[in-house]
Amino acid sequence: MELQDQPTVSSLRKLLISAFIVFHFGSVVFWLIASGGGSPAPVVGLVAKYLHNTAQYQEWAMFAPNPLQINRYLGARVIFGRGNLKEYTFPRLSKMDIFEAWTQKRYRKYQQRMADLKNPAYAEDAARWIARQMNEPGNPPVRVTLFLYESPIPRHNRPELRDAGWVDYTALLRHQAVFVPTIAVDYLVQPEDLQ
């Protein structure tokens, strides 16, 4: 079928399609502006209803207003029934080669979001999952303490770095970084958690 042979579009169809385009893109733009605050709540509610129910909501907060200045990861201390203790760490991209990191990058996102949200319900789910991963026959985990480890990213324009000339950021961020732990959740494992 050549272009000139294609059926023409009726005016009503054009009108409906145009209305949808305007509504949809208007909603997205409004949503992005409103997410900064200051918009009338009922209108936000209507737009939010549409965008959530069609899964067309968007969030763009990576680069502004404040880019993340902390390196973070999640780890856990697991205590077993016999009293022994093991450490668990979620995959850390900085400890991997580029190909492994490429396949594991979703874990980084997960840890970042967990650190952002600091939600106990998510943290308990993570603790239960770790307990299942670490479970040993006849020696089940009884307690999982989930830690959030944080280390500030040195500003690139700090005087001591600027004056030093060449700065090895790989060493600075990967090997010399000092991570400080805080407890995300201290969870007592129940037998049904290991099912």
Binding site: H52, R106, Y107, Y110, D125
Partner: peptide
């Protein structure tokens, strides 16, 4: 890329359960 971690990320045997989402997510999904 998700395939090897599908059950970890998206099942109730994984990192987030539906019961938790029911408690935490306060919007239509």
């Amino acid at each position: 890329l998700f395939a090897k971690d599908t059950t970890t990320f998206f099942s109730d045997q994984g990192l987030v359960t539906v019961a938790t989402l029911d408690k935490v997510v306060n919007r239509d999904w």
